[in-house]
Design a protein around this nucleic acid. Sequence first.
DNA 1: ATCGTAATCCGAAGCGCTTTGGAAGTAAAC
DNA 2: GTTTACTTCCAAAGCGCTTCGGATTACGAT
Lengths: 354, 354
Amino acid sequence: MKVNLKMLAASLGLSQTTVSRALGGYSDVSEATRRRVEEAAQRMGYKPDPLARRLATGRTDTVGMIFPFDATEFGDNRWGEVVSGLSEGLSAHDMDLSIIPVLPEKELDTYRRVIEGRRVDALIVSWTRVDDSRIRLLQELGFPFLAYGRTESPLPYPWFDFDNEAGARAAVERLIAFGHRRIGLIHASLDYNFAAQRHAGYLAALRAAGIDPEETLIAKSPISRTGGYKAMEELLALDTPPTALLVDNNLAGIGVLRALGAHGLQPPRDLSVIVYDGVPTDIPLPYTVTAVQQPTGEQSGRIMARQILAILAGKPVDEVHHLGQPVIEAGGTDGPLEAQVVAAKRHTRKQAVS
Amino acid sequence: MKVNLKMLAASLGLSQTTVSRALGGYSDVSEATRRRVEEAAQRMGYKPDPLARRLATGRTDTVGMIFPFDATEFGDNRWGEVVSGLSEGLSAHDMDLSIIPVLPEKELDTYRRVIEGRRVDALIVSWTRVDDSRIRLLQELGFPFLAYGRTESPLPYPWFDFDNEAGARAAVERLIAFGHRRIGLIHASLDYNFAAQRHAGYLAALRAAGIDPEETLIAKSPISRTGGYKAMEELLALDTPPTALLVDNNLAGIGVLRALGAHGLQPPRDLSVIVYDGVPTDIPLPYTVTAVQQPTGEQSGRIMARQILAILAGKPVDEVHHLGQPVIEAGGTDGPLEAQVVAAKRHTRKQAVS
DNA sequence: ATCGTAATCCGAAGCGCTTTGGAAGTAAAC
DNA sequence: GTTTACTTCCAAAGCGCTTCGGATTACGAT
């Protein structure tokens, strides 16, 4: 039989009020009775009914994440890590994370339903777009949320993000320092904020070095292995392909490396490659990949959990920001242009002979 | 301003009871007033507060899925489809699906918490084990659930599953019909029920054909690309490798095919390969894969949604079962043994010459 | 002896909905 | 005209918790 507040109170000869406040950690109950109450609650296995609590307080102690199943997020283990860290960070404060799956075309409706249904105290918006209708809706409704990634918005809002522009710039600067001038970019749809920012960083680095960006060296690709594969093939088909390449997401990165392999090419001999976010554990590669690295998803998740709690505690939204700095992690897939040229000469000579 | 039942009732000059029952579709309210009520509710934008309703009814109209982040499920787009179908099937009945992420080591605790917290009306257990403590816990607590995959249990319980044994048997029979006798198996941990069943089907087919299973032809592998890759390399390193192979999951299947490619081997010339569940969209392959195919995840999800609703409606648990039949989808990765032998001869001859 | 203060405790009013157990009105049956 | 049987509606009692606004007691201060 489930015990409730009333029974607990009765068995202690106290009022429900006092028991409730004792358990709630209020100061107007003596240390002695608090201990008595806690002991009894423990002994009788009392657990406050969250449904009742919710109705009384109006809080659900749950934060939600609406998850559109267009699946790009799948296979990206980074996302899993973030969720994991978030969940852990929240549960330390007795809050839960609930992921609400939804068909992409019904996404906005679901936001409305979830908010109206008061199913969660706050929402996390991931994969932000440059122009993001979800964030506009949330702002309009005045519902608490945290954006995982920034967006263009006239109003302030809380966000967690990395300095994508700086990351891409650093990567391209590294390639330039290696002597490259024909540097390609494979990027996701520029509707995604992260892609737009990395794209901007790429252009900025080139221009700063006095290099005119070439449209043909820039290929768009879905966030997927296949996407990266095909985009790489496009670039390889150019009359003069790039000598170096930045790939703006890890899934496409795998595809790129596979495409190179399939064409008998090997980084960095034939092409210098830097992959944003590195490549997830996939199948064995004969080299480590030079990457723009960001903190692990777990760390990010924990920070986001703290941000969410701060928002719910009433911290002004224009103060809740976190901008992580990515770092370049040197690997074996990029190198000096001269080395490549030499290798290429050897290669063509060999081909001519055979 | 949010309108509640009381306000709605007042504005109509009716009691809360009547309004509630009108909206609830009870028969003891006249058609005329029902219409009036519905019209007014619509006009005033009345939405019953789910928190209050939950407290009153004790139902949450949510089904949960506790999701351990050991990540095998990631990258397996099949799982995403299932979730999607489930979610859709449930929302047609105004129920929600909530995915609760959890660290693997805290999984059982979370089951307890979620149940005690009455956060959901029912749970879905996925990736069932042969011996599954989660299912035991749920049975013990008498909490409604649906197992996605069977398990060994003395008590009846509701499940959704495919005939894994039959699927594996059919695949192996096909290979046998092609003349193969050295047929390998790459399988996931046999703690997983699906793996155990497919393993059993594999053995059964061999024995039925009078072939003695060879331990060395059976390799265990994690459910991942890397796992499949390594397992394939193990089998290739054998003195006499198998001439045909069944891979019991799609992720490992990709790894297997990549490993073959990396060793300059090509199915079916050098090895006949059948992959359970086919291979997910990955990077381009020069052939279609012969697969044991199951209905799409969406369909499965919708069926599961119906099952859950039936359980909640009180249908006896030993009547809620669904066993899907997998079918072999012929592709270009398997074929007659003789053809392989001929090709191999040609191959070795060529090697001898060069 | 009286007052103010601080420390504890509690009654009762919600939170917004569902549901039980009638009551009132109306029509059919005798 | 009375009885029976519906039909339609409603008052009130929860669901289990939180919290506001005191009430009570104890005690040092005046």
